[in-house]
Design a protein around this nucleic acid. Structure first.
Lengths: 344, 344
DNA sequence: ATCCTCGCCGGGAGCGCTCCCACAGCGTGC
DNA sequence: GCACGCTGTGGGAGCGCTCCCGGCGAGGAT
């Protein structure tokens, strides 16, 4: 029946060994102050000699919380898995969780399974809350979560749902700073390779590009804006599309796309940064290693993950009812050779 | 108390609605054949109108299995997260699980938390079994799992533990094929950049290199073997170390290292493949996009993940007691420009 | 008619905890 | 003296399921 447990000790066993009731053992485990110091000592030693480990499933059933968080990465986004973004995010969330004695359950929501998945996530009672890393503007999963009152936090802001807590990088400012930097260096035909415009981050970074141009008194040339898909191959294609319009600088909304653009420029016989300056976004490890090293807008994905966990847990705390919180982290421009100028 | 559930219906509610006992509802949910077709129908309709979803925690407590698998990626390896390997593995395992109605719980075992983590994994009762993606030869977690009789499957073979089921790529053959290919093309000073030799895969790929040389009647020159760490930067450094010894070919034990080697070669003013041929391992997406496109040994990481889940579930099945199984998948050499010759 | 089987169903017990209430014992204040 | 608190402890009830046992009626074998 029970598959793995070969008669693991339970609360009662510990209680018997320590000569107390199971309530007292439970109190000790849960750090209830109302336990005599000597008793507490006895219980702990019984716990250790028996190598007792509380059963988290039973605890979950009795208390209504499982100390497990869900991490949902919706379909479509999961296909972008070549992007280190998700790996780092998962890492950040996972380490934050284990530090706080929570576990993380992963759902890569597939197209066909998505509906069933949502149901399980919501009603299975397996998880206390959920972190959703969707950047799709119209993602149905978010509405479903709200409706079911499942505590959740979004990674990446979402304009339609101000009532949900979010953590996000200030994509707009980051993009704006990058483009402004290019303009200051004297570039006049600054192009951009955007992410999908149905992703919030994609749209925000594009908006930052436009704002920077407006700030400097330029108007955007539609021919210099190409939408792509956050992948290297997509960046390559987009750059090829841009070449006939002779940009002297390109801001790519992700490093992967910037690397693709570099490749296209090299194939086209153009020098970076002499002929075309390039700036990416994310500052992934590969950016510094590119040839030439890629200037990029750095965001701390780890920090995003940590914050998301933190926000979710305060929400679960329940002792204080807090409204939604929206944490926005400013990215920083990391200047390297690819944008020209003088990388002091 | 219960945080999220706003009076979700339970078994009893469904039973009442359908005019049967909770046992019957349970039987219906668990596809027990001993239920009258008409009754079954009534129960299902009650389930749907009430939007009932079985509580997986309660089910787990009562039945002793939670339908949750653990995925453990030990520390040290987690720092290699820039390698797409783990992202793809996670994806493969996750999709296989959700197809089979299992969930996956992620543990990135950190150094300091590792001991506690092991305990939780083993005794928490939260998971039915665990997939361990450790390639460290001396990983203590494996011994711990065996000792506790936790059902588990390793991704990557482990010489010391034949009693545990494993899935693995035939690293030795893959490496051997790559190096043999280089030798057939007339290269005579074939170097290798190995992975850490305390990782099984690293050692196996190195052994494959040596075997290929021996097959062809050459003896390995120690100066042409440099140990590295599976990263791009590591590959770069290793290649710089190799340059003074004038290799005319390099087999790198991972694509990331091969890309690093490419970069070092370019910086050193050497042409690929004219001066030095290069072959990598894994065939990650970036391999095909490299300049020149990288010949690589392709392994299907997705397939590894799927198989791991499959093996673990048959182990959990319990209806038939099966011995350990070791599935080895042959990799294939994907020939591109970086190794020279004629990529037909 | 009796026995046994078999499909179908209900209810008790229990999984291992948490939570609440009860209660003993002691001290404090009037 | 009694009322009241406060600390420390025990036990009942219950979380929402699964599993097992037992029972009921229908049908075939004897």
């Amino acid at each position: 029946m029970t598959l793995q447990t070969h008669n693991r000790p339970n609360l009662v066993a510990v209680a018997k060994a320590a000569g107390v009731s199971r309530s007292t053992v439970s109190r000790v485990i849960n750090d209830d102050p109302n336990v005599n110091a000597a008793t507490r000592e006895r219980v702990w030693s019984a716990i250790h000699t028996l190598d007792y480990q509380p059963n988290r499933v039973a605890r979950g059933l009795a208390s209504g919380r499982t100390q497990v968080l869900g991490l949902v990465i919706p379909q479509g986004v999961a296909t972008l898995f070549s992007d280190p973004y998700f790996a780092i995010l998962i890492q950040g969330i996972s380490t934050a969780c284990s530090r706080l004695d929570y576990s993380v359950m992963l759902w890569l929501a597939e197209p066909d399974h998505e509906r069933r998945t949502i149901h399980q996530v919501l009603h299975g009672g397996l998880i206390d809350g959920v972190i959703v890393s969707s950047m799709l503007a119209d993602d149905p999963i978010i509405a479903a979560l709200v409706e079911r009152r499942m505590p959740c936090v979004l990674v990446g802001r979402h304009p339609d749902h101000p009532e949900i807590s979010t953590v996000d990088t200030d994509n707009l400012s980051g993009a704006r700073a990058a483009v402004t930097h290019l303009l200051r260096l004297g570039r006049r035909r600054v192009a951009t390779i955007t992410g999908p415009q149905n992703m919030i981050a994609g749209a925000d970074r594009c908006a930052g590009y436009s704002l920077a141009l407006r700030d400097a008194g330029f108007s955007a040339d539609p021919a210099l804006i190409v939408e792509s898909d956050f992948t290297e191959a997509g960046g390559y294609r987009a750059m090829q599309q841009l070449l006939p319009h002779h940009p002297d600088a390109v801001f790519a909304a992700s490093d992967l796309m910037a690397l693709g653009a570099l490749r296209a420029l090299q194939h086209g016989g153009l020098r970076v940064p002499e002929d075309v300056a390039v700036i990416g976004f994310d500052d992934i490890a590969a950016a510094a290693l590119a040839d030439p090293p890629l200037t990029s807008v750095r965001q701390s994905i780890q920090q995003l993950g940590h914050s998301a966990v933190e926000l979710l847990l305060t929400q679960l705390d329940g002792s204080r009812i807090t409204g939604p919180e929206h944490r926005v982290f400013p990215p920083t421009l990391v200047v390297r050779r690819s944008c020209g100028g003088d990388p002091a």
